[in-house]
Design a protein around this nucleic acid. Structure first.
Length: 457
RNA sequence: GGCGUCGUACCCAAGUGGUUUAAGGGACCGGUUUGCAAAACCGUUAUUCGUCGGUUCGAAUCCGACCGACGCCUCCA
């Protein structure tokens, strides 16, 4: 099955067709670096990674960008509150974003452009819009004139009542948006010089110009959180499309929110959970699986119970994987029908829950054969291929570390003693040693091939 | 107020016209196995998909109304 993606432009699943044959260019709206990101932010970032990996699975070479918004009102607020510098705040949280991304196995992007490094281009871009009568100046602010761009409203129906005037900024039209913000006293030394005076670029212009500079304003796929659909993405594309007369992006993908008690998790509502806290408590593999365990276009409510269930799922996969001698480098990805079902699910608009279902059905089938001792070489090979395929997308297994290799000496000794006791049929001693092992945070299982020690769940 | 999304078992969650008289995970209960556990395996758990109508040979899937939840229209992943 060819890759299908739900395009927000048409509100339909569409067969994906790239601009050039092999290479796909994607851009995702990244974090505003003024705060530690919460788990909801990372739902979207992990979704970008999923898209990237599925594109690669389909044989595409990807060129990805996720921007760093490092000029913004909230950042300036923090700079003023903490009496520090812009760079100090933004570099701290940019680093935290990149580290958490790595920890959640998000593949590195080709570009992580910072808005502050493109201000010159932004000023030129705004000037070009003014020259084309697509923007106008008002008290040192520059606004995009949506009346000059009749196609405005690709993501929403702009209704008549929205045309009421908003006099606060003396805009011509309520939906005219800021390209350049005139400097305010509270901005301190955070400003750039332009022909229209001191100020700084607006958010929508930042993304538009980074895309223009890196990708010549022409993308295969633009993605972001659902809340950015309007006005951010509307405005982003309006600027580029009004000026360049072609689509900014052929596909627009929007990820739904992670909610907290059925309400959107957000920094402004204060109902968010830190990613780092969550990773520390549950492990990054569990958090990653949790974020991928629901389809990206459905709302998800956060709960610890779900994370606990994901942990159990991972344990089940690991137990299955331990049946095989995995040398992941030497597994040739030769797909059979079982694998194709998994790929089909992913190609059907990144249906991760469907793909997980296919994988678990396969595990069940193989486990049955293992229990009956009827598993053959072909099954084993299929299993290895499936494990590798699964991990190429979900990336929650460490094949080199499936067997807990670092067993402390103390435990090794206990295992030897227990082995001895079992040999002597001294169940009382054997069980007391088992209790001791458990009290140390490990657990021992007796299998036909001997004792199997693992970290306690 | 305008625009939009969603409502599937005890919980989570796929499926969006016939291969599904509804995947997969968790939980529960019964069984096989085991010295006992654990794990694994087998079986059971929605004749039903918010409610009521309609279209169709056929609907969880399409249409309408209603009820309920949420989002966007202001910063937001």
């Amino acid at each position: 099955m060819s890759l299908k993606l739900y395009n927000s432009l048409s509100s339909k699943k569409e067969v994906f067709k790239s601009i050039s044959d092999k290479k796909v260019k994607t851009y995702g709206c990244g974090p505003t670096v003024y705060n530690d990101p919460h788990i909801g932010n990372f739902r979207t970032f992990v979704f970008y990674d999923l898209l990237n990996r599925v594109l690669q699975l389909n044989g595409y070479e990807t060129e990805t960008a996720v921007n760093i918004t490092d000029i913004d009102d909230k950042i300036i607020d923090r700079v003023n509150q903490e009496n520090t510098s812009l760079k100090e705040i933004t570099s701290k949280y940019e680093l935290s974003f990149l580290e958490l991304s790595k920890s959640l196995k998000i593949l590195p992007n080709n570009h992580n452009p910072r808005a502050t490094e493109y201000v010159e281009e932004m000023i030129e871009f705004i000037q070009a819009l003014i020259n084309q009568d697509l923007a106008y100046e008002m008290n040192g602010n520059i606004f995009f004139d949506i009346e000059a761009y009749p196609k405005y409203g690709k993501f929403v129906n702009i209704s008549d009542d929205l045309e009421t005037e908003d006099n606060e900024l003396s805009k011509k039209n309520r939906n005219d948006f800021t390209l350049w913000k005139a400097k305010k006293d509270s901005d301190g030394d955070i400003f750039w010089d332009s022909e229209w005076g001191k100020g700084r670029p607006g958010w929508h212009t930042e993304c538009a110009v980074m895309i223009k500079t890196l990708f010549d304003g022409r993308l295969d796929i633009h993605c972001g959180g659902i809340d950015l659909k309007f006005p951010h993405h509307e405005n982003e594309s309006a600027q580029i499309e009004a000026l360049q007369k072609h689509n900014l992006s052929n596909y627009w993908l929007h990820a739904e929110h992670l909610n907290m008690d059925d309400e959107k998790m957000s920094k402004s509502l204060g109902n968010f959970i830190d990613v780092s806290t969550l990773i520390e408590k549950n492990g990054s593999d569990v958090v990653r699986l949790f974020l991928l365990s629901a389809h990206y276009r459905t709302k998800v409510s956060f709960s610890q119970k779900k994370l606990d269930e994901c942990k159990k799922m991972i344990d089940k996969i690991k137990r299955f994987a331990k049946n095989f001698n995995i040398d992941s480098k030497n597994i040739e990805l030769k797909f059979s029908s079982e694998h194709e079902l998994f790929i089909d699910a992913l190609n059907d608009d990144l249906n991760t829950p469907g793909a997980i279902g296919v994988f678990f059905s396969f595990i069940s089938e193989m486990n049955k054969k293992i229990a009956e001792n009827s598993i053959n070489d072909a099954d084993k090979e299929k299993s290895l291929v499936f494990l590798k395929l699964f991990n190429s997308i979900f990336d929650i297994l460490d094949f080199n570390n499936l067997h807990d290799q670092n067993i402390p000496k103390e435990l090794q000794d206990l295992l030897v003693s227990r082995q001895e006791a079992r040999k002597n049929l001294d169940w009382k001693l054997s069980d007391s040693i088992r209790d001791k092992i458990e009290s140390l945070g490990w657990q021992v299982e007796d299998t036909s091939s001997g004792q199997n020690l693992s970290k306690k769940k």
